[in-house]
Computed example of a mutant assay.
Amino acid sequence: MPRVDRSYAAAYGAAVCAAAYGSMKLAQALGAGALADKDPLPPGLRERLLARDPLFVASHWVLAGAALVAVVVALVSLRRRLAPVPRRLLLAIAWTLGVFMIARSAGVLGFGFVGDVLLLTGVRPPPVEHAALARDLAQWDLLLWSPFFLLWGVCWTMVGRRLRRGAANGAGNSRQATRRFQGSGTR
């Protein structure tokens, strides 16, 4: 697949991942379970989440809204001309989200492949009072959440690369056009 096609696929992938995540958070905000019991949270926070604590309900509304914005950002990044939206802003959003999601999937932020494997292999023992729950959540995180955030993060970094490359090509193209214009007047 040509590089251009991959970058377009990555933008659509980022939009689809954002839509899926936002749909899940919207469903949770409206009262559905939608994988809430598989969220890798410490036991106290998990209980508050499942009890529909107002703070968690509000956070689901915020995350659903943020996901909607992410869908728009991913789709706007596909446009050739970004006049109404500063390319640097889109570039900063894409790279920030990409790096954050890849770091989350790897385990830098506490959850992720490394932490899950350490817990499941016994290298890092789970809390004694919640050992079974911790193992269950680590399995879900290892098989669902970490790969999802890795895919989403890679899509965002590819969008960032496309935007950066587009900015560099745009600057180069305008310089070439200026040279051609100046050169045509001297003949």
Rank of each mutant, 00 (worst) to 15 (best):
G110V: 08
A103T: 06
V85S: 03
V114G: 00
A83P: 07
G98L: 08
A67G: 09
P127C: 01
R81W: 08
P126W: 00
A106W: 05
L68C: 14
P126T: 01
T121D: 12
L91N: 10
L89F: 10
W95T: 13
A132R: 15
L137K: 02
L120K: 05
P126A: 12
L120T: 05
R81P: 00
V69N: 02
R80P: 04
A132I: 10
D116L: 01
L120W: 10
W95Q: 09
V69W: 12
L90Q: 03
L97G: 00
A132N: 01
V69K: 05
P126G: 01
V117L: 15
Q139W: 14
L90C: 03
I102M: 14
R81I: 01
A103I: 07
R80F: 00
V123M: 07
F100K: 11
L82W: 02
P86V: 07
F100E: 06
H130Q: 12
E129V: 08
T96H: 05
V99Q: 03
A92S: 08
F100V: 06
L133Y: 01
T96P: 06
V99F: 14
L133M: 10
D136A: 13
A74F: 07
R135Y: 05
A83M: 07
L82M: 03
A67C: 15
P127K: 07
A70L: 13
P126S: 00
L91I: 07
V76G: 02
